[in-house]
Nucleic acid binder design. Structure first.
Lengths: 236, 236
DNA sequence: GTCTATAACTTGATAGAC
DNA sequence: GTCTATCAAGTTATAGAC
């Protein structure tokens, strides 16, 4: 039998992805999971901790996969010339595979991540503490593949690429269902052929020569992959 | 003196952009605008209508600018060969100018749009009814500039491009403040030089040759620019 | 048009029985 | 570990005085 704790995690993951964090009440999660409200508080203490638990459950496994895929590729390169396409693939492959995963609710998680990424003030520090180092590791590989690109330009392009990928990944449940229905390009499942259409788009952008232009003040926070602080009138 | 109605719109626009729609209460808007709760209901009937009013106030002017920029460019082309870069510029120029606008709170609106785009279920029909036709118009121009690209591929790339741009535009207040502080590439203000770094990235992606691959079932809803429906267990 | 007052309800969280 | 019962606070929305 499935544990109560896991049922809560699954239900919350789904509802947060579908409706957003703030718009989802603990009571709707309770109804979806078929448990009592108090059970949520017993297992997770607070709503925010619940979100943290959801993220922790899936973040590290995916990141391990990303890093090992990158290391495998780097080890396979003999002449030291890294290709942008393969670096992007090492990052996106685990992501898209998860987005199409028929067994686990991984596709729900990917949709949730796509959402939270746009609600950056909501993204707990966990995501940045866990994903940040991985992003820096990939940025380093991209920098070696594109030695003529100044760091500020590299990070701007990385940001653009993440936004582009997130836009499609917000549709993870759709990707999932198409894959389930056998859509795809003959030999490849749908999610994989979708990924192989996205990578050339991003790679071409990364490989555009950099036309002079000043180094801008845009750099500092971007090189950290920190959430953007909105310099508005008041905070919270 | 500034009208109460406008003060409410300004305050709500700012807070929705900063904290998200669901997380912002009418009372916090009331406090920010310095008006009474009842005044909000008097002028806007409901919270959702308030969001609609915010969107309507700025959506149409920006779209008019986008369309006229595109028409001006098309009229200036004599050999009938449209360039992707210029089409993208016609769309992005009004957007980025608004994102940096020192006078109005346009940059707040752009940040809000970037957020809502990720909370697609929240985006009222208004956005799709007003922005949809404009997007189709630009997709048509892109299709003429890239005649070898199948529509499904064109729309996928358009979606990637919008996600990439939105990712950067979510930082609109930051772009705004940098421009205010005189950052930029010598002759150009910061926001304009930023836009000119983004367009080549996107354009290169659009111009990548399309390698075979099957036409996928991904097409139908994407060609409509409809919000993605999440095929989860229950709805609302 | 703007206010006070309040209705009617939902929220996250907890205490205590079992 | 899971329940019932309940809390205090916050939510949108409205009725009616000015």
């Amino acid at each position: 039998m499935i544990e109560t704790r896991d049922r809560i995690l699954d239900a919350a993951e789904r509802l947060f992805a579908e409706r957003g964090y703030a718009a989802t009440s603990l009571r709707s999660i309770m109804a979806e999971a078929g448990v009592n409200v108090a059970a949520i508080h017993y297992h997770f203490h607070s709503k925010e901790s619940l979100l943290e638990a959801i993220l922790l459950r899936r973040l590290d496994p995916a990141n391990r996969e990303r890093l090992s895929a990158l290391e495998d590729y780097e080890a396979s390169v003999v002449d030291g010339r890294l290709e942008v396409d393969r670096i992007l693939e090492a990052f996106l492959y685990p992501t898209f595979r998860m987005a199409a995963d028929p067994a686990s609710g991984g596709y729900t998680f990917i949709a949730l991540l796509g959402r939270l990424q746009a609600e950056s003030d909501l993204l707990p520090n966990i995501v940045f503490s866990r994903l940040g180092p991985v992003l820096l590791r990939f940025a380093d590989a991209l920098g070696r593949a594109l030695p003529d690109l100044p760091p500020s330009e590299l990070f701007l392009r990385a940001r653009l690429a993440m936004g582009a990928a997130a836009q499609v990944l917000r549709d993870a449940p759709h990707i999932h269902s198409l894959t389930q229905n056998g859509a795809g390009n003959g030999s490849l499942p749908h999610w994989e052929s979708l990924m192989e259409r996205i990578i050339p788009f991003l790679s071409a952008g990364f490989r555009v020569p950099h036309h002079g232009g000043a180094e801008l003040g845009f750099l500092p926070e971007i090189t950290q992959f920190q959430p953007a602080a909105l310099p508005l009138q008041e905070n919270r």
